[in-house]
Design a binder for these strands. Structure first.
Lengths: 102, 102
DNA sequence: TTGATACTTAAGTGAATGCTTAACTATCAG
DNA sequence: CTGATAGTTAAGCATTCACTTAAGTATCAA
């Protein structure tokens, strides 16, 4: 799932960087305080989760985000939130009964 | 961040269960194929991430989701997706220039 | 062909995770 | 008080993670 992939700060930074356009592996690695193989590992996770694609031309591998996957993660959360809001009445009663502030 | 917390399947199941209303620790643990201390650990992670709150009355600890935190996670993704869509033109040009199918 | 570039693979390490069982502590019911 | 219930803490263990360095492979440029 996408959350596993997005659970790491470095990978979120990679996704964030890629949202402004495709980039080569070394370009992605340059600003990060770690070795290139480490960045490769993160890209592999992102690609396995479907959030990112890449293709190689010559010796350069170019990566880009797959917006459909971001949408999917967004939808999961959105559905849960909607479900929760449906049961806000229950929450209200619960909080009252327990005497919790706010 | 919330993604770290949502990265685990058990914790997503807990959040999902809680979206239909508050529940006690043992009620949450009952359907899960693991020990109660293990579930406690997951709840601690969820609470640390802000996705879940709990309070104890007598010997029962009741847990509930914090919708604001789900919204925050949703917003992060939403913003990234919007940013990406802004640069869809760049992607189009990129794909053309690389001769990628679709 | 020679050297630099861009990535890839492999091996290894330390820390964090996810789990277990066992031993408590704190209610609550009778 | 006594026993059952609800949760908590502690110790230990196997696995996974996020890195590292070192040693490749494949282009490309001259």
């Amino acid at each position: 799932m996408a959350y596993q992939a997005l659970g790491d700060a470095t990978r979120r930074a990679l996704v964030e960087r890629l949202t402004s356009g495709p980039a080569a592996v070394s370009a992605l690695a340059a600003p990060l305080p770690m070795s290139l193989p480490a960045v490769m590992g993160h890209l592999k996770v992102l690609e396995a989760s479907g959030l990112v694609t890449s293709h190689k031309q010559g010796r350069v591998r170019t990566c880009s985000v797959v917006p459909a996957m971001l949408s999917q993660a967004e939808r999961w959360i959105s559905e849960r939130r909607a479900m929760w809001e449906q049961s806000l009445d229950a929450l209200g009663k619960f909080l009252e009964s327990e005497g919790v502030e706010e």
